[in-house]
Design a protein around this nucleic acid. Structure first.
Lengths: 212, 212
DNA sequence: GCGAGTACTGTCACCCGGTGACAGAAGCGT
DNA sequence: ACGCTTCTGTCACCGGGTGACAGTACTCGC
């Protein structure tokens, strides 16, 4: 939660932190990939970071939250992109552009991103924890759709659109992390275009392996 | 797992069971609604059923699995309906019909169904557990789409279609369980038709509260 | 330099979900 | 009667997660 403004020097007041959310994430990612999620205990992660188990749970509410750090902070980007999109654009088109714009990563970050996503879609417990984190993401899309269509946020269509868009993106994330053949945005673009075309037979039969 | 064939009398061999998956589900549903999910311990459920905690975990792998009993057994229905659908039907149209056909409930079962779904979409931990159970459901759709489009099961489009269909159905389930104004199939139909139309603006702006 | 306040930290105790091992209970067939 | 089978309870144990509380290491004002 204390988002550590990187620009500021740090005229902090109390006792300095013994670690950071980011450091715990790096350690956890390494241990999870090396020896598995279940085989890694919170005590181990904390020990490597040089803090106590209790402190880990002050940075993350749950063991399964530790890989969602960056993702959580990207929701705001999507929200802003959607808010600033031209009014005459079809709803799904606006969403597609916002998602693509929010998913350009620096090449040096890609390997870590891929490992993280691999774990998130592979380990059952992590996949289950996704629900909570995708919630804010989903809500951003839902709010936008509700506003643009003049419907209530809790009515069927905005909810269905938000969920379906998220589901499509998750499919794209997953395929991208499993294969190593193209840019993430290519997968996202293909999936979202197909969604906007209603997954019509002519569209989804198109490419042999989707994208290459 | 022991699916207790209702038709058979029961010339069983060993010690008779002290309870049943169904009974545990009923007790759990009642306790969850009365006093909340977190506030209900497995010991309590087991105690009411007159068995030990260990026995509960022989019927269900986890506390959060106890409400998914019937849902899990409906996946086979969907799979069969999809397998028997005419070849000339568009993919999404076939899926829509199968889903609708599989979701006709007897009027007397509706109140319980609604309570269950309410909990499943309200309690965070239960919503998280959904992932595992929806997996088989999703896979049924994915296999069908893959077969019909001649693509591999692990390629992008079948995965995206399966996920998006599921997401839409979940939205329909959720809205239906929160409101009490129409048949479940009406919500499902509206959602899936909109999906097949690519959530085009003209479609989703249509009804004021989606369905009534 | 010194106390006050602040923001972290570790330790401890506890609950509960989940699991493996093993012995006991209660039915079946012969 | 006996063995086999199927279910059961007890026990011990692990790990995730939480509340309470004391301790530590800074900054600030004086």
């Amino acid at each position: 939660m204390p988002a550590d403004p990187v620009g500021k020097a740090r005229p902090r007041r109390g006792r300095p932190r013994g670690t950071s959310a980011r450091q715990l994430e790096e350690i956890a990612l390494r241990l999870f990939t090396e020896q598995g999620f279940h085989e890694t205990t919170v005590d181990q992660i904390a020990a490597v970071a040089g803090v106590s188990r209790r402190t880990f749970f002050r940075y993350y509410d749950a063991k399964s939250d530790v890989l969602w750090n960056e993702f959580d902070s990207e929701v705001e980007t999507i929200r802003e992109l959607l808010a600033g999109s031209p009014e005459d654009l079809p709803v799904l088109e606006a969403v597609r552009r916002a998602v693509l714009a929010a998913n350009h990563y620096r090449a040096e970050d890609v390997p870590e991103l891929r490992m993280r996503m691999n774990l998130l879609s592979t380990v059952a417990e992590l996949a289950a924890s996704a629900t909570r984190h995708y919630d804010a993401w989903e809500r951003a899309v839902i709010s936008f759709v509700a506003r643009r269509t003049g419907q209530a946020e809790d009515s069927l269509y905005p909810l269905a659109v938000g969920r379906a868009v998220l589901a499509t993106c998750r499919a794209a994330y997953e395929r991208w992390s499993a294969r190593a053949d193209a840019d993430l945005t290519v997968y996202l673009d293909a999936g979202l275009r197909a969604l906007a075309a209603g997954f019509a037979d002519e569209v989804i039969v198109g490419e042999p392996e989707g994208v290459v």
